[in-house]
């Protein structure tokens, strides 16, 4: 077994260096619930999405629904890695995914910076009727999240972001 690289904890408590792989929490005994703890860096996102996809495969979702969940979740996790944490530090993220009837609730919790204005952006369409030079190369994340979810809610507590994404599974 290769030894994991050592991690250094910086003064503000964030972990520096190569993050460990996502760990599945065994605290929640419900088979319908997936609980994952991981570092908020882009390098972790593929593994997290794969774990969610594996979890959802038990519920026999169609490929289209799985894809919708994966895309929206990827955008939310990108935002945490690049904006809530971003820069040189990264911190912990907790993902809790729970199927409730025909809905999937995904709660993402991080200890990074709050969303600007402490409100999830509306995710508006951008003007694409422009010269090629002026085409936007970003700013599509919230548009995708809004389009692919049934409902989005966000709570900022003193030191924590809590974003809930609700998907319709049928």
């Amino acid at each position: 077994m290769p030894q994991p690289l050592s991690l250094v904890r910086s003064a503000d408590g964030t972990v520096m260096g190569r993050p460990p792989p996502p760990s599945v929490s065994s605290r929640d005994p419900s088979p319908d619930t997936l609980s994952l703890h991981f570092c908020g860096v882009v390098e972790q996102i593929r593994e997290v999405l794969e774990a969610v996809r594996r979890h959802l495969s038990a519920f026999e979702l169609g490929g289209e629904r799985c894809g919708a969940v994966e895309i929206a979740l990827a955008e939310a996790l990108n935002n945490i890695a690049e904006h809530a944490y971003g820069g040189h530090s990264h911190g912990p993220v907790h993902l809790c995914a729970q199927v409730q009837g025909a809905l999937l609730h995904v709660v993402l919790t991080d200890r990074g910076r709050p969303l600007p204005g402490r409100t999830p952006p509306p995710g508006l369409h951008q003007d694409l009727e422009v010269t090629p030079d002026a085409l936007p190369e970003g700013g599509f994340g919230w548009l995708l999240i809004r389009e692919l979810t049934e409902e989005v809610s966000y709570i900022r507590s003193p030191d924590e972001n809590r974003l809930t994404l609700i998907f319709r599974l049928e």
């Binding site: 994966e70 990827a74 955008e75 090629p132 190369e137 599509f140 995708l144």
Partner: peptide, 16 residues
């Protein structure tokens, strides 16, 4: 099989 908004942005950038 999968692209996110960063990947989409990279394709747009490739065109620009």
């Amino acid at each position: 099989v999968f692209i996110d908004s960063s990947g989409l942005g990279a394709i747009v950038a490739s065109m620009k």
